[in-house]
């Protein structure tokens, strides 16, 4: 049986929006190899760079936060980002576990 674990990130997104914050939702949409979080894992980021939830085990969160901030600044609706260990930014943000993930970020507007 699959459990219905739910980390209540969307509930928190609603609270942030009610507090007049700009919110970007980040979702793991694909994984390859060994990745710390499963597809559907979520994180939210506001315009100040505060974040809640996770899309990895701490490996790429900082990069996701800056991507989310750019999305707000450039006022774009959404973007797909892939993180690979072979990525040239691997030393900075790559997945230490050797997996790959695709994260989709979107503004809630």
């Amino acid at each position: 049986m699959k459990n219905s674990f739910d980390e209540k990130i969307l509930d928190e997104a609603q609270d942030w929006i009610n507090a007049n914050q700009k919110v970007v939702l980040a979702t793991v949409i694909q994984t390859w190899g060994s990745s710390p979080r499963q597809v559907g894992s979520r994180m939210i980021v506001n315009e100040k760079g505060d974040f809640s939830g996770s899309v990895s085990g701490g490996c790429v969160e900082s990069a996701v936060v800056s991507e989310c901030l750019s999305l707000i600044k450039d006022n774009k609706p959404c973007k797909k980002i892939e993180f690979k260990v072979s990525n040239e930014s691997a030393w900075e943000v790559g997945l230490a576990c050797g997996g790959e993930i695709a994260v989709y970020i979107e503004q809630i507007h």
């Binding site: 739910d6 969307l10 997104a13 609603q14 929006i17 979107e106 503004q107 809630i108 507007h109």
Partner: peptide, 14 residues
């Protein structure tokens, strides 16, 4: 995602 969609999702969840 639209705020309206988010509200609808939370309603369905609860």
């Amino acid at each position: 995602m639209k705020i309206k969609t988010l509200e609808e999702i939370l309603k369905k969840k609860s």
